[in-house]
Simulated scan of single mutants.
Amino acid sequence: MRALRVFLVGGLAALALAACGTGDSPTTTAPTAMGTPKPSTQAIDHPITVSRTGGLAGVQDTWTVDANGLWQTTSRDQAARSGRLTSDQGAQLNTLLSDPALLTDLSQPGSATCSDAFHYSMSMGTRRYEMTGCGENRPTFDKLMLVLRNSTQ
């Protein structure tokens, strides 16, 4: 439980630092050879949807990224947001989604012994995974969630 809280505090700190970054939004455009902006159309290999519920505050968050890199997030206490991944963000997600270690992380269902645990539901293409976050070590899934949250700000 302490590890989960440390992860959440670290994740929030990383999000705060990312917000102070270059100022590029997820819908930034890349210049073409002629200098005219061209929208990024980086697709991801596996459309994904991740839902996170529970926790001490009773969150209800959903992140969705389609095959064209269009994303949408919803949260119980915030307005829905949407945008498009940049090429770098799509590449980062593809790398993590194709990492065999992610399947290892997703195969750990977790335990429901924590009173303030998060429940994760992840759809990747036609596959669906369910797990409870109660301090389990899932480094690749944690990286995926960090990239997903940072890419959908």
Rank of each mutant, 00 (worst) to 15 (best):
A79F: 01
T152R: 00
L96Q: 02
Q108E: 11
T95L: 10
P100I: 04
R52S: 12
L103T: 06
N137K: 09
S115M: 07
L148V: 04
Y129A: 04
L102Y: 12
H119K: 14
V6C: 07
T41P: 00
D45K: 15
D99V: 00
G21D: 07
C134S: 13
G125M: 03
Q78T: 12
D66H: 02
E136K: 02
P37M: 07
Q108N: 13
L56K: 08
D24G: 05
R76S: 11
D99T: 00
G133Q: 11
M131Y: 04
E136W: 00
S151H: 00
R149D: 08
F141I: 08
Y120R: 09
M131R: 04
S82M: 14
V50I: 15
S51W: 05
M34H: 06
Q78L: 10
P100R: 02
A101K: 14
A14C: 03
I44T: 01
A30E: 11
S115E: 15
T126E: 10
R84K: 13
F141H: 06
T32A: 12
T29W: 01
P47Q: 05
T140W: 09
L4V: 12
Q78S: 12
M145A: 11
A33V: 11
P109Y: 09
T27D: 14
L4R: 15
M124D: 04
S75R: 15
A117K: 14
Y129K: 02
E136I: 03
D116F: 07
T53A: 10
C114T: 12
F141Q: 12
T53W: 03
T104R: 10
V9Q: 13
F118A: 13
T126C: 02
A19N: 07
D24S: 09
Q60R: 12
R138M: 05
T95E: 12
S121Y: 10
Q60I: 00
D66Y: 04
R138D: 10
L144D: 13
S98D: 14
W71P: 01
R84Y: 00
T152L: 01
D77A: 09
D88L: 11
A101G: 15
Q153Y: 15
F141E: 14
G69M: 03
N94D: 15
G83Y: 00
H119Y: 02
A80W: 00
Q42K: 04
R52C: 13
L17N: 03
A18L: 05
T126A: 13
P39G: 03
D66Q: 05
R138G: 09
R127L: 13
T152D: 01
A3I: 02
T53I: 11
G55F: 07
I48G: 08
H46S: 08
P26N: 04
A112S: 13
G125L: 02
S107P: 00
P47C: 11
A14L: 09
T86G: 08
T95Y: 05
P47K: 01
M124N: 01
P47S: 13
D66F: 02
G58M: 08
D24Y: 09
G11K: 04
Y129I: 00
D61C: 05
A3R: 10
L96R: 00
P31N: 03
M145P: 01
D142N: 13
L70C: 06
L93S: 10
S75V: 01
M124C: 08
Q153K: 14
A80H: 00
L4P: 09
L96V: 08
F118T: 10
L85F: 01
N150F: 01
D61F: 08
G125E: 01
